[in-house]
Structure formats: C-alpha cells, structure tokens
Amino acid sequence: MVKQRGFVIWAVLLAGLLGLLNLPLPASRQAKEAVREALAPLHALVSGAGLRLREAGTTLRGIGGLASENRALQEEVLRLRGEMRALQTDAKENGVLRELLGFKRRAGQKLVAAEVIARDSTGWWQTLRLDRGSRDGLAADLAVVTPDGLAGRIVEVSDHTADVLLVSDPSCRVAVRIPRTGSNGVLSGTGVRWNGQVVCRIDFINRNHAIRPGDEVVTSGLGGVFPPDLPVGYVETVETDAAGLYLRAEVLPRADLARMRHAFVLAAPREAPAPSRRGAAP
C-alpha cells in the first residue's frame, strides 16, 4: 500500500515536470517575463555595485600614473581636434556631393542607451541582458551596437529588460559584406577561444574574391534585421572550405563582447513628420 502511494506521488511529480516542459509558448514566455521583471532591479543593483567596485579598483591602481595619463590625453585631444576639423570639411563636401547626386539621406535611427545587467546563466548561449525593455521602445530583432561595432540582436524582451544574442553565438547569423572586394557572406559566432578572444566566421564567400587578413567586415543589410554598413570586425584568417567551393574567413569582432558594460539599441527609425494636409497631393 505504502509502495503504491509512493509510486502515485512520483507519477504525479513526473507528470508535473513533463507538463512544465510542454507548456504552451505564451504561458512559458509570460512566466519567464514575470521572473525577469521581478529580478531586474536586483540584477541592476548587484551589477551596478560590481561596476562601482571595479571602477574604484581601477582608480586606485591608476593614481600613480595620472600625470602621464593626463599628458597622453591632452595630446589625444589635440590630435582628435585636428581630425574633427578635417572630418567637418569632408562632411560638408560629402553633403554637397550627395545633393548633387540626388541621394536621399538615410532616416535617422533612434538609439536607446542601455546598461548590461546580466549574462546568460546557463553558459550554453552567448547572451546578455540589458536594463531596457519594451517600455523603452525595444522589440525582438532590433540590432544592438557598441561605439566600436555590431554586438548582436535582441531575442527576447520584457517590459524593463531585453536579452541580446551576441554575434559570437553560433546561432546568431548576420549577412555581411567586405567593402574592399564587395564580397557577401554569412557571419556566425564560433564562441570564445581559450585566451578569451571572441571569434566569428564568415561562410560562403565567393572563392574568386581575393579576401585577405585585415579586411574590414560590415553588415550588408540583406535579411532585414541589421541595417547596412554597421562595422562588424576584421578578417583574421582566410581558407577554402572542405568542398573547395567557397572561401571561409575568421573574423575578430570590433566590439569588445566579453567585457561590454553598455550598449545602444538601434530602435525603430524615428517617425517622419506627418505630411501636412495642406501640402498633400489631392
């Protein structure tokens, strides 16, 4: 009798577990969102405290070298001012040429700044969590960038958080282009090397294109998820694939994916001002 009762209890427990595994997607998503929302403030608090501690440590370590750092920064400021003047001249010239050629200026995209508050807790994905969510205008499949280059795309979003699949994850695919040769390919992550270096790979490059190490890689805009011309990284090595039909290149991402603390989400383009009724064509 006791054995039978034990059997029934375990059967119920296992049935519960199986039910959990087969939860309908909306229910599963709602449950995950609820837990994420509840824990988001705690995540932000712990992650913020860790950041402050690291910053304090860096400050303490750097006190000795402040004078030389200050000199180096002043030189950098002078150099950057010079570059900025040159770029302003180029931008003016570029604008004039574009007008002459009749190009349309690309719609300005809204950038949402966000802080990284957590990383994947299972270790099987290359993801991180941002402290902004659907209430800030974020949605799935929006591109995430750092000042250096592309970081990934949003895969899941709740009211106040968003999960980003990094380009270093093997399941993240990005249509890319090598501007020097005009070659197109598909970039996917290959994980992280022993030394912590994040590496990606481009497959299906036309073998007649002379790709070489150091070539810049940017998004091609094909596929619609990532806007074109976002910097992605640089080619490190090139080889022919096993079948000998295509080239394959290893790419070092420009963005420091392993240590990024802040990111920008390319939210939906700013809405163009509504055409005035007076000016509208009949």
Partner: peptide, 19 residues
C-alpha cells in the same frame, strides 16, 4: 525543479530544461 525554473527564466533556454 524550482532552481531549474529560476535558471531557465533568467536565460533563453526553454522553460523546464534545467528543471
């Protein structure tokens, strides 16, 4: 089961796998 739920909810793993 509960610990697995917490882990899955905080990642992009389908709910119940870690449980």
């Amino acid at each position: 089961v509960a610990a697995g739920l917490v882990q899955d909810a905080l990642g992009i793993v389908p709910l119940g796998f870690s449980s």
